[in-house]
Structure formats: C-alpha cells, structure tokens
Design a protein around this nucleic acid. Structure first.
Lengths: 244, 244
DNA sequence: GTCAATAGAATGTCATGACATACTCACTTG
DNA sequence: CAAGTGAGTATGTCATGACATTCTATTGAC
C-alpha cells in the first residue's frame, strides 16, 4: 500500500509535521480506513524520500494522537478516525470563544482578602495571608453559564477590577508575565446554593457541575486557584482517554 | 550544574528511560529545584556518556510530562514537582483497586435489548439492533458508589451475567480479544432519579456526577458505550491540563 | 497432532554528524 | 536614549548507519 502524501522539502513546515498532517488528512478523507496495515517504517521512509528517524518521529506523534497503533515485530496499522484531543490549559473564556460562543463576564466581587486555609494551601501562602479574591458571572449569548470564584497571590503584580471586567483572568495574568504551564483540575457535582441558583437563573437545589483547579506557571509556582460552578444543562467536560 | 544520574549501559532498561526516571527522582528529591536551569543538551549528553538524540528523546518525554520547559535558543529548565498525570483508559474497577479501595459489583440487569437510537449511534449499529445491556451497582467498602449502565455490541462474542458478576466488564471484553484503544468521555452533573437515589442510598434529587463514555478498540470499532452515575460526595474526576 | 527451535519481519534503541532557526545580549549608529 | 545589527548560544530538524528485541510463521522432531 503506497503512501500518497505530498511532502515538500522547500516548505518551512518541518518534514515530520507534514507527514503527520498528511496522515491525518488521509485518514479523515477515508483513504486510510481503520484497520489498514501500513508498510514498514523503512519502506514508508523510502517512499516519501525521508530518513527513517524522521518518518519515525512523525509516527511517534501519530501513535500518541491515537491514529496509529504499533506492535513490535508485527507492524503498524491505522485506528482512526477517532482521535485523541489533548487536554489543554485554557480559560473558560478562551474555550467558549473557540467554540463560537460569545462569552460575557460580570465582576460580582473583587478585592484582597485573607486566603482561607485550603486556598492558602493550594497557593503556597501562609495561612491567612492576603490574596486577590474575585467572583465573576460568565454568560454566553446572554444566558448565565458559570459562577467563578478565583484566588490569585498578590506577588505577581497588580490586578484591577476594571481590567478584569474587560479581559479574562488568564489574559491578565499573562500580561503580568506569567507563563502558564499546567493545572490540576477536579470535576464533580453539587446542588446549587441559593446564591448560585439566583445568579444562574435556576431553581435552588438544581444540579451544577463543579470544577476546582489550581494552575502553576513554568517556574512551578501556583498562580491561581479557583472554584467554578456551571449550569449542568449547559456545560459538561469532555476528554479523551487513551489506553497505554 | 553537573547531572548526577546513574545510567547503566548494562541494564535492560533503555538508556532514555533511565534518564527520565533519574530526572524524576532528582526532581522529586529536591535535587533539581523548580527553576533550575540545565546545561545544554550536548553537554548533558556528554556528562552522561550518551548521544545527543538519546538525551533528547529522554528530555522530549520529560517536557511532555510537564517536568521541564524548553525554549529554543535559550535552554531548558525544571518546572516540577507538579507533574502531568496522563488520562488513562481504564475501568472504574481498576481505578478503585489501584487506589487501595475494595470495589464490589452487583449486577442489577443483564440481557440483550434493542439499542435506543443514541446508543445505536454511538456503537455504530443499526437503529433498534440488539446489543448487550447491563446495569450494575458498584460499591466500595460496602458503600454504594456508582450506578453503571453499559451497552456492548453482540458481535464481539458472548457475555454472561455470571461472568459479569465475577469480573469487570472491561476485563471480560479483553478476554474476548478486544484491545482497548481510547474512549471519548463526558463528565457532568444531574439530580439523582428515585431509582438511582435508592441504589446509592441517598435522597432523591441529590446531586450526582454523570459520566458518558464510548470506548473504541484498536480497529477503531466502538466496543462499549455507557452512562454512569456517581455519588457526588464520594467521587469526582481528576485530571491535569497542560499549556502548549 | 503437539511442541520446540529457527528464521524472517518489523519495531525499538542508539550512535555520529551536520545544518537551520529562534533567542539573547552586546555593540554600534542615529 | 532608542533602535538596529551581528555574534554567540541553544534548541529544533534531519540524515546515515547499525544493532537489539519482540512477534509470527514455518519446519522438524517426537
């Protein structure tokens, strides 16, 4: 089965990236149906005029993405078109904007306050140390979606309520020079408090999706911790799990 | 800053794996504190007596794991100890057993039934085609944790209620020769129905965490789809998000 | 027919070598 | 002082070459 990918050595796009993209396109177009057994790496590389390590680097990526499975001594075959979508650290604002929604934000509370013990623990602060505290209501197309409470250490720089009303928190933090690295997140469920229910325009004791997250920067410093509550009928968390 | 990793060329463990493990140990032991700037790749490889591609392969993994960040033209530094835990496809039974709990399962319903339209869609079956249908109650240390409804196409082989009472569904499917590959999962919240509340020994209209998942094998075939409901006070979903 | 050994196939690992590109800093010029 | 340029640094990409390990199928012996 000859590969029919277009690889250009004049392109600024690295060769292995072109291979990855070509595979994905071929799989999505049905030219490489699930179950297709590929030629061995050496032959594939020969066909594309590449070195084997370059071919292999491309295939490493495709295996990690879930499009291909490899078995030592046997060969490689196509799995797709079901593809792994990696979990990305981004803000709800960015997620919603990316999915075509028009998110708006209302700042309900903003200030500095002594961090409760759990928050202090997450942020690596002394108990009772001051931190920024903010509560926002996020809506989409005019409909309330989430109540978001966040805490941010004071040490990174100055945040203002005016800025927070205009831009997302993550955007502001990036503006302070913070390079986000990763976040640990926990998703659960709860009954909406009366406060939350009022804001989300639902009955009290309706179900809400809860999300707690602490994000760290590329220095390993905790940069924000938050507790968000989403209307369960409007929002859920999607993810792809891989077998290893 | 000289690296102090123990690398043995006699070990059956690949060199790059030894480097990864050595880094992780050093970071976890505090020998490589967050923010540490590492020597360049060529020097690190020299210090460890390795080739640069081997060094680089190890560091690729550490970057993907979130322990290191690299910047072209600048260098590489340590981020940890906060590490990315990749999302793995495994069954609730395996997850709980791994965390030290003693899960038990009660089969509430088992049989074949026409798959509802949505289920048929997920499993790639014709509408109304028969599929295995099962409902189980999972408990931990005698306390009910989850109500789990699953559908499995008939085509993979025979499942029996007796087997399901003894072993997990994923275990049974593996026994039929299925190689799990990945699953798409959605986590949300809902109010427990009376049926669910009775089983989970909670009040009706308490909040439950919901999870819908469709798993596919390494041929790209959907092998099971399920809808699970967890007691929100006992279970939540944890995950790590990476910035890219 | 069953079992063990062997050969072939293919992935996995590792090395040497070289060039390209992005980033930072210092110096020069306006 | 600010902007631009060039050099140095380090990661990113790619190639050739070789050996190790795992898997499967075939063959031979019992």
């Amino acid at each position: 089965m000859a590969l029919n990918l277009k690889i250009s050595k004049d392109s600024p796009v690295p060769l292995y990236h072109q291979v990855v993209q070509g595979f994905e396109d071929a799989v999505n177009a049905g030219e490489l149906p699930p179950g297709t057994k590929l030629e061995n790496e050496i032959e594939l590389a020969r066909q594309l005029g590449l070195s084997r390590p370059t071919m292999r680097k491309a295939m490493d990526e495709l295996v990690r993405a879930g499009l291909l499975v490899r078995k030592r001594g046997v060969g490689t075959q196509v799995v797709a078109p079901s593809v792994r979508r990696p979990l990305q650290l981004s803000s709800l604002h960015d997620d919603l904007a990316k999915s075509g929604s028009r998110p708006t934000t209302k700042v309900l509370e903003f200030g500095t306050a002594p961090a409760p013990a759990e928050v202090a623990g997450h942020l690596g602060l002394a108990a009772g140390a001051d931190a920024y505290h903010m509560i926002r209501l996020r809506s989409v197309d005019g409909k309330p979606l989430a109540v978001m409470e966040n805490w941010v250490p004071l040490a990174f720089g100055t945040l203002t309520e005016e800025e927070l009303a205009e831009r997302g928190l993550y955007d502001l933090l990036r503006g302070l020079g913070i390079n986000f690295h990763l976040a640990h997140q926990r998703v659960g469920a709860a009954l909406a408090t009366r406060y939350q229910a009022d804001l989300l325009e639902m009955e009290p004791r309706e179900a809400v999706v809860t999300m707690e997250r602490t994000a760290t920067d590329d220095q390993g410093r905790p940069v924000e911790t938050g507790h968000h509550v989403y209307a369960a009928d409007l929002y859920s968390f999607e993810m792809t799990l891989m077998q290893h």
